[in-house]
């Protein structure tokens, strides 16, 4: 690293004369513009906004917006990232790398949640909500044990991550290159050779079978026939709008429940009737009350989910444009025939 820094200094001397001239392209960024995008956080706390949130508040937000992928306690669903546990496993045969066991800096959690979460609705959390979520993640990792604990910009730097000293600068030049910059043997290099492992034994390579290809064609054909009765242009537009939905809702042949229930046959179907999906209590109550996903109800729900069903798990904020709404309704009809 020292050598690397020396090079840096040398480079800055070499390049400084080049910096004397410029093309005069671009314009000065306004303060508001820089503030809007410059939200990154560093381990030394630079970038942390003023604010705070408690473990209890964090739990409520987490269950509503994060638990469908990460599990109620950060244990994760399917192959989504595990956020908690794994303490002391880093040198085990199967290490569990979580925020608690592996991440060296808490600032990384704040930065990442703020910029990329929840999946499918990034940059929608307030700073206080992010503080609360980070506090909850600390709690499920046993870094803090008081559920009244409030994490804020004031105490943020006092929280140390367990694995903060678990990383060091790339040492391949010393450890590996010194070994592998070498002469290579060309003939009579070994006497015997044996196969020690075979991929066929593991058998995890994806297969494409003729049956699957035929099924795909059949589905494609079926869809073409069905949508003929609908407004094809609107369905096409709806397919695009559906990009906002498809990270959570699967459709088509063999679609499975994901973060949200699959939507095959959703139109005119009874609410909460998708077998195997863990609906929110609120949705179950609506289902018992006899809610049917007809056009009017779908429109109302998709416009602003939480306005219609306050405690729904669906974190999507809602479709604002009338044109998008018309398109998505036509699309949902098309996948329900």
């Amino acid at each position: 690293m020292l050598k690397f820094l020396k090079i840096l200094i040398a480079v800055s001397f070499i390049t400084s004369p080049v910096f004397a001239s410029s093309l005069g392209l671009g314009r000065t960024a306004t303060q508001d513009e820089v503030a809007a995008w410059n939200t990154d956080i560093r381990p030394d706390g630079i970038g942390l906004p003023v604010g705070g949130g408690s473990v209890i508040d964090g739990e409520e937000i987490f269950v509503e917006k994060c638990a469908s992928c990460h599990g109620d306690f950060g244990e994760a669903v399917d192959r989504w990232p595990v956020l908690a546990g794994g303490d002391g496993t880093l040198s085990d045969d199967r290490p569990v790398k979580t925020v608690g066991s592996y991440w060296p800096y808490l600032s990384t959690v704040f930065d990442y949640v703020g910029r990329a979460m929840p999946f499918g609705n990034a940059r929608s959390l307030s700073n206080d909500e992010v503080y609360a979520l980070v506090a909850y993640i600390l709690y499920v990792n046993d870094t803090v044990d008081d559920e009244e604990f409030i994490l804020s910009n004031e105490n943020f730097l006092s929280i140390a991550q367990e694995n903060v000293d678990g990383f060091y600068m790339d040492d391949r030049p010393q450890v590996e290159y010194s070994k592998f910059i070498r002469e290579a043997c060309m003939s009579n290099c070994k006497e015997t050779v044996q196969i020690t492992a075979r991929a066929a034994v593991v058998d995890v390579t994806p297969e494409e079978t003729a049956a699957a290809a035929t099924a795909e064609t059949a589905v494609a054909n079926a869809e073409t026939e069905d949508v003929a009765a609908l407004d094809a242009e609107l369905v096409a537009a709806g397919t695009k709008v559906f990009k906002k939905c498809k990270s959570c809702h699967k459709v088509g042949e063999g679609a499975k429940n994901g973060v949200g229930p699959h939507l095959n046959g959703i139109f005119d179907r009874a609410a909460g009737s998708n077998e195997g999906f863990k609906y929110s209590k609120a949705m179950k109550a609506e289902a018992e009350a006899g809610l049917i996903w007809d056009e009017a109800n779908l429109r109302a729900f998709i416009t602003k989910p939480k306005a219609m069903i306050k405690k729904t798990k669906m974190s999507f904020p809602g479709l604002k444009k009338e044109a998008d709404m018309n398109a998505i309704i036509e699309y949902l009809k098309s996948i329900s025939q």
């Binding site: 880093l90 290490p95 925020v99 991440w103 800096y105 990383f167 060091y168 600068m169």
Partner: peptide, 14 residues
């Protein structure tokens, strides 16, 4: 940090 770091035998990572 969380990704693209190389966890070695002793539990430390490059």
């Amino acid at each position: 940090t969380s990704k693209y770091t190389d966890l070695l035998e002793d539990g430390n990572a490059r």
